[in-house]
Write a protein that binds this DNA or RNA. Structure first.
Lengths: 164, 164
DNA sequence: TCGTTTTTTCAAGTTTTTTTGAAATAAGTG
DNA sequence: CACTTATTTCAAAAAAACTTGAAAAAACGA
């Protein structure tokens, strides 16, 4: 019945919101489309469907579907069911504290884990080397261990800091 | 006089150091070669030349030159002049506190700056909109402003935290 | 200054990441 | 259940990021 493609231009406010989140997610190493989608949902006064996102941002269905999934995984958005509507409607999580906690947990913590194993392995390698350089290696590896320890304590500290 | 290409394999310890820093710089959104180069210089008992880096890591001169430049810009390495040697020799900056302070200053602070302008612009746009949604927009933009303020205070706080 | 060695630059090539679009699947409705 | 609509999947295309190598420039030493 309605077959107009609803290609409404973004308002200036929406454009700014989208651009802001695009920059933010690129800083975090996530794809641009994630920032576009979240930005639009974030600023919107009401829940948006995947269709809204596709038509307003001019991105493909595939991008939208994958982007929405990743945002759900990060718990940056959630679905709300509107009675009598078939499509899923998406709402933003607006508590950035939670968003960053999830991001740290999902994207950072695993790497810190791997780092510990690497440093332990390096320690063993340096111990079994009885060369003249062994002292040097131990000192450098110790510095790494201290850095690692700080990283491990930093992420929870940041989460606390954000808790305004 | 010596024309052997000095293609010494990396020791296991060197490989681990390189791999560790590759992961770290990828987390920070920097190219892999930056991590390789810094990792090798970091673990080395003595200063290395660009040539050492090219031959030991098996990367191109171009990559090495560009990577070394970026590392100098970040103040992650510095040149040491060795009497009677023509080539530049590179030493690592091993104080991670300084490294992160430089990184934040160079790569993060500019973005935070831009964010403030964007939020101010959004505020003006929302104020001039006299629609029913204006209240909603103001609330969302205020949350952004709080996030931005936290980001601005967080980076110096991290620098202090690392100061062990 | 001249010849040699070292470093930088940058266009082209390669690799990696992201996006697309069409087909398949799933989900909601009558 | 059959039909329609919505969503997901994934191979291929496009875009972005990184690396290469050869030529140019700079630096050094005699």
């Amino acid at each position: 019945m309605d077959d107009a493609p609803a290609e409404t231009e973004l308002s200036e406010l929406e454009s700014e919101a989208v651009a802001l989140f695009v920059r933010l997610v690129q800083l975090l190493g996530l794809p641009k489309s994630i920032g576009q989608i979240y930005g639009l949902i974030y600023i919107s006064p009401r829940p948006l469907t995947m269709d809204d996102i596709v038509s307003r941002l001019g991105i493909s269905l595939g991008s939208a579907s994958q982007g929405l999934r990743q945002l759900r995984t990060l718990k940056a958005i959630r679905v709300t069911y509107i009675p009598g509507e078939r499509k899923d409607h998406y709402l933003p999580e607006t508590e950035f504290r939670k968003l960053f906690a999830n991001f740290i947990e999902d994207q950072l913590s695993p790497h810190i884990e791997v780092g510990r194993d690497a440093i332990d392995h390096m320690t063993r390698l340096a111990e079994s080397s009885s060369e003249a350089d062994a002292i040097h290696y131990r000192a450098r590896i110790d510095k790494l261990r201290r850095l690692h320890s700080i990283a491990g304590r930093l992420t929870p500290a940041i989460a606390r800091f954000i808790n305004f």
